[in-house]
Simulated scan of single mutants.
Amino acid sequence: MSETLRNSVKTMVKETFEGPPVPVKGSWFTSFEPNSGIFGVIEGMSCDQASISVHGTTVAAHTDHIRYHMWGTNEIIKNGKQPKMDWEKSWEIHSVDEQQWNRIQVELRNEYVTLLESIDAIEWNELLANEVLSSLAHSAYHLGAIRQMLKVVKR
């Protein structure tokens, strides 16, 4: 993969999780506000807010589902094959206490850092390129879902 494309992928992944660069000079697809990526959107959210059901799911479930998907991506990068994954189980979180909510956020950040570090070290092939780009798209999709849920959660 060319250095230009690798840097572009990293920029999009960073915007998904961290929001646009500060000071905000523009955004590719998130809001122009600082903290409009996944980390900023869930930052300061209480475990009670993260546990509010919106149409049968919670922000905590979405956040952990993003982590789970990213873990799978990191495993594919590391081992070259898809790990056994239980997608239904990844949606089983209905409520969290403060400790669980903090753990989900820390584990998501760890998977994010691992992915960013891996992007620089990957021996790229079509499978890995598709996997990294699908992880980006998947995370961006859930960022949008969480932002919509916040309209209910933060009322």
Rank of each mutant, 00 (worst) to 15 (best):
I38F: 00
M45S: 09
K89F: 09
E111D: 14
K84Y: 04
W87S: 11
V113P: 02
A61R: 09
D97N: 15
I104K: 04
A61D: 05
E88L: 12
S53E: 14
P20S: 11
S31H: 08
N79Q: 10
G37H: 06
E75S: 10
W91P: 06
G26I: 02
Q82D: 14
G56Q: 07
G19D: 08
P83I: 03
C47P: 04
V59W: 01
M45P: 00
R109K: 15
I76C: 09
L115C: 11
K25E: 15
E107A: 09
I104T: 04
V113I: 15
E92G: 06
I93D: 05
H65I: 10
K25D: 06
V96Q: 07
E88K: 11
G44F: 08
W28E: 05
M45N: 02
A50Q: 00
Q100I: 04
F29L: 03
K78R: 14
I93Q: 03
I38R: 03
S53C: 02
P21L: 04
R109S: 02
Y112Q: 00
V113H: 10
G40K: 03
E75K: 12
H94I: 04
R67H: 13
M85L: 15
T114D: 06
W71P: 01
P34E: 11
N79P: 02
S31Q: 12
E88V: 13
K89T: 07
D64E: 14
L108I: 03
E43D: 15
E111Q: 14
H94M: 08
E111H: 03
S53L: 15
W91R: 13
I76R: 07
K25P: 00
F29N: 05
E107T: 04
R67E: 06
S95M: 08
K84L: 09
D64A: 13
C47I: 00
N102G: 09
D48S: 12
Y68L: 06
S31R: 10
K78H: 10
P83Q: 06
K78P: 05
H69T: 14
T63H: 03
I52C: 03
W91M: 14
D97T: 06
G40R: 02
F32M: 08
S51M: 08
V41N: 00
A50C: 08
G37Y: 02
M85I: 12
G72A: 13
M70Q: 14
W71E: 08
I76H: 01
I77Y: 06
H65F: 05
K81Y: 07
I66W: 03
G56E: 09
E92I: 04
S95V: 05
K81M: 11
S90G: 14
T30V: 15
W87I: 14
A61T: 09
F32K: 11
